[in-house]
């Protein structure tokens, strides 16, 4: 197995995620406890989601990254010989990847993430953002419609190039609505409005991006142990560029499709392992290249399944 790790992004969360790992695995539990101390959040309670905490950007971001890192530590302990060729995280998941690849240390990473989540929540609350998934439609057509639907004060643009079959657009609600209307006028019916709290990866997050730039100014990035492919550039992160890229990340579209292509073509992966809640990224990978073997780990049972498969 030549493996690419995929790290879940926001939107993949669900109630009680990772709690079976928390109960059964000491290194996982330790990770959650350390992250709780570093962020000043009670992640155990947040995972239970009894008061809908996971619907809030400010809580869900540290919760997902912590889960992904807890699982990564378990894998490092149980399968130290694993042939990991590269890593990609979707948006938020890029922090999981950079921490997993020792570019960003866990303590600083968690603190930065807490602030990132706060900046983003603030922009999400201040703007009238909306997003919609467009399926099976040419990128040129999508980009054209976005241009037509935007004007000086309201914008809509591609925000996530997820797979050959799915692009998500986002922007001011009025502009997104205009774009949806234009799609319908062109007989493109495969457009689904998404339930999101903001138009992530669009210019609507300008304020968060500028705050992020300041926040990252004194954060140290090391060389990654394996290539981590950036959503923003679709190239490996280089430590001297990471601050700038992570600042731009907030207002730039994600190129998950190209990132996976990079791992297939340049790092020769034949297997992906999605680490963190859900299996959205595995599904995108399947749409990108059916031949890639796929695993996802978000509970004890699929963790064991992967351990057994990797030992042949």
């Amino acid at each position: 197995m030549k493996i690419g790790f995929l790290f879940s992004g926001q939107g993949a969360q669900y109630s009680n995620m990772g709690l079976d790992l928390y109960e059964s695995d000491s290194i996982y539990r330790e990770t959650v406890e350390q992250a709780s101390a570093l962020t000043g959040m009670d992640l155990g309670t947040i995972y239970r989601n009894e008061n809908n905490e996971l619907a809030q950007t400010v809580y869900v971001q540290p919760a997902i990254v912590t889960m992904s890192l807890g699982i990564t530590r378990m894998l490092k302990r149980d399968l130290p010989q694993l042939d990991v060729r590269g890593m990609v995280g979707l948006s938020l998941g890029e922090y999981s990847a950079l921490i997993a690849a020792d570019s960003l240390d866990f303590e600083n990473g968690m603190r930065v993430l807490k602030d990132r989540a706060m900046y983003m929540q603030s922009d999400a609350e201040k703007t009238d953002g909306a997003m919609a998934a467009v399926m099976k439609t040419d990128i040129d057509v999508i980009e054209n419609i976005c241009k037509k639907a935007s004007n000086g004060s309201e914008v809509v643009c591609p925000a996530n190039y997820n797979s050959p079959k799915q692009v998500v657009i986002g922007g001011n609600k009025a502009a997104v609505d205009r774009a949806i209307k234009l799609f319908h006028e062109q007989e493109i019916k495969n457009v689904i409005p998404l339930k999101v709290s903001g138009a992530f990866h669009t210019p609507l997050f300008k304020k968060a991006s500028s705050l992020m730039g300041k926040r990252l100014a004194n954060v140290q990035f090391e060389k990654t142990t394996v290539p981590v492919i950036s959503n923003t550039t679709a190239q490996p992160f280089a430590p001297e560029k990471s601050r700038e890229i992570l600042t731009r990340q907030l207002t730039s579209p994600t190129h998950f499709h190209q990132c996976v292509d990079y791992m297939i073509n340049n790092l020769e992966i034949d297997t992906v392992v999605e680490i963190g809640p859900g299996q959205t990224l595995s599904k995108f990978t399947k749409q990108i290249d059916k031949k890639i073997e796929r695993y996802h780990i978000d509970n004890q049972s699929n963790y064991q399944k992967f351990i057994e498969a990797s030992r042949g």
């Binding site: 998934a133 399926m135 099976k136 079959k165 799915q166 495969n190 689904i192 959205t280 599904k283």
Partner: peptide, 11 residues
């Protein structure tokens, strides 16, 4: 499945 999956299945 999420709502996008349902959409794709119908499609």
């Amino acid at each position: 499945a999420d709502s996008l999956d349902v959409f794709e299945i119908m499609n």
